[in-house]
Write a protein that binds this DNA or RNA. Structure first.
Length: 284
DNA sequence: CACCATGTTCCTTG
DNA sequence: CCAAGGAACATGGT
């Protein structure tokens, strides 16, 4: 699920529920996800601490905590990897098979589960040091974007996945943004014209903000699932009813382009699937 | 069994 | 030092 929009919706969801809650104990079931923090360090830092502010940076969730009689403020950093989820559960509810870290909050538990354990739940804030600008903020200007893209001759699709170029765009929204901007994914990043970069800049903002709006308006408990604020789990998911017409090209190989009817094509770039319309997104 | 998957990082090569 | 490609990570779905 996890690109910027999904993380943003999750952050907004948790922001209404976590602040004010105090951590009674910490259970680390998969130490790999807290690296390089140790289980003892995490315990020491979090036990007795209360959630205050929750923010997002790229695809990272940033939890700030405070503790009475302790001036040190803690920052907990989360990342969902490919398959991570975070949600609150009643204390009595059974834990999911792949619960990686569980925080005891009293009546409820805050669960980070991750079937593949690619994600993170750690005190290591340096993970975010190399991130590029936030695409929905002013720091992401057309000129910044253009200056960055000049440095690379790799295909533009590949550079959109580079979190140091712009933070938060993943494989789905990279294809979606290029479709909206009508740019071929194979175009070398350093050969885009200024007008094309401008289109892409706008397309990225549009695609991400539309997805946030979409994720904010669909019901969260669809199909009897846990309320975790997430809204992408593949086309076979219960949420697919809400999904029609949302993504224009991603995972639509062979289906007609919504703009011109030409079959959508799938290619592989940097070992990831890319979807595009060969007519609307023709190379110059 | 084979292949694919929403992400990041590390290693190697040039 | 940088760019670029590929493997690795771990598991589940088709």
């Amino acid at each position: 699920m996890p690109e910027l929009p999904e993380v943003e919706v999750l952050v907004r969801h948790l922001r209404r529920r976590l602040p004010g809650k105090t951590i009674r104990s910490v259970s680390v079931r998969r130490p790999r996800v807290i690296r390089p923090t140790s289980a003892a360090q995490l315990q020491r830092a979090l036990r007795g601490a209360t959630f205050t502010r929750i923010t997002r940076r790229g695809k990272y969730l940033v939890f700030e905590l405070a503790r009475a009689g302790d001036s040190a403020r803690r920052t907990l950093v989360g990342h969902l990897g490919m398959t991570g989820r975070m949600y609150l559960l009643p204390r009595a509810a059974p834990l999911p098979k792949h619960a990686a870290v569980v925080l005891d909050l009293g009546r409820r538990r805050f669960v980070y589960e991750d079937a593949r354990y690619f994600g993170r739940f750690t005190l290591e804030t340096a993970l975010m040091a190399t991130l590029g600008p936030e695409p929905l903020e002013r720091s992401f200007s057309v000129s910044t974007f253009a200056r960055t893209l000049r440095r690379f001759r790799q295909p533009i699709k590949v550079k959109l996945l580079d979190q140091s170029v712009v933070a938060g765009v993943g494989n789905i929204y990279a294809s979606e943004a290029l479709f909206r901007a009508r740019l071929a994914p194979q175009r070398p990043a350093n050969r885009l014209a200024r007008a094309e970069i401008q289109r892409l800049h706008r397309a990225i903002q549009k695609v991400l903000s539309e997805a946030i709006r979409f994720g904010s308006t669909i019901p969260l408990n669809h199909g009897g699932r846990k309320s975790d604020g997430l809204f992408y789990f593949g086309k076979a998911d219960d949420a697919s009813d809400y999904y029609v017409e949302r993504l224009r090209v991603y995972d639509r190989e062979g289906q007609p382009c919504p703009r011109c009817g030409t079959p959508i094509r799938r290619i592989v770039q940097a070992a990831r699937g890319t979807f595009y319309c060969p007519k609307c997104q023709a190379r110059p």
